[in-house]
Design a protein around this nucleic acid. Structure first.
Lengths: 134, 134
DNA sequence: ATAATTGCAAAGGATTTGCAATGCA
DNA sequence: TGCATTGCAAATCCTTTGCAATTAT
């Protein structure tokens, strides 16, 4: 399973494209809904399998949103995330120095660190404003 | 459901105790296995319900380990985690300045941040040493 | 006494998987 | 052609939930 040759299927290509064109960090199901009109016989299983392969290839990142389902992010350069506990929105936070964090943790521990995930939780700007009206 | 009064059941008390006495960040199922001899009629549902209540009370934290199941941590003071992709171990990393991170993110965004989760992934010290023997 | 909690079993829901058919390389 | 991939459906697995019985306050 290591030195497997990947093929370029229409489905996989479009799944990555659809994911690259949004910043809402969608679920597998959302991706499926987007592509179902284009591939009427598309199945959720195919979407999941391709998301896993694309993750393996380093072309996307799987996010644990705090809910029961996973989300996917095609912006693979290291960055932090914010999850709003009111609307469920998941936003990017750029310019956070994850590389620095990784370095300081690597000297603090003796582990070999490959990845850093930084996730904030709270109430987003929009929901804060809406709450103030109540 | 907000101003509910919690009761002090033996089960809940022991669940928190068991969790406080380990640093392996166990799953609900592990907690269940620990307490089953003590409460022969204990059910997994009860464990899950109590873990949820204890989390609500701020007495423990739920961790998304990267696998399909959740883990729980009774050390509630802010700290980072490391997950080993080889052995599945989940370790604490103390002395990481999560408070600082929270502050800098709060001025960078306009969101109200309540919580920070910092998780590293890689290969732990032990597994690194074992791999070197191959 | 009142309402939270338990135990049990069944339901739920996201994700995975087996297998025959399909289609890249 | 060979083998990765698809589609479909069933299976998996962790977690949640309804309900009657129990128990803390």
């Amino acid at each position: 399973m290591k030195d497997q040759t990947y093929r370029n299927t229409k489905q996989r290509k479009r799944i990555l494209e659809v994911l690259s064109m949004t910043d809402i960090h969608p679920t597998a199901s959302w991706v499926y809904d987007q592509l179902k009109p284009e591939f009427p016989s598309l199945s959720l299983g195919t979407v999941y399998r391709n998301l896993a392969i694309l993750e393996e290839q380093g072309l996307l990142i799987k996010l644990h949103s705090g809910s029961t389902f996973d989300r996917y992010d095609a912006m693979v350069s290291p960055h932090a995330h914010f999850v709003c506990k009111v609307c469920g929105g998941l936003f990017d936070i750029k310019d956070m120095e994850l590389g620095e964090l990784k370095h300081s943790a690597e000297i603090k521990t003796r582990h070999h660190i490959e990845d850093v995930k930084l996730t904030y939780t709270g109430v987003c700007d929009d929901c804060l404003n809406k709450e103030m009206k109540d």
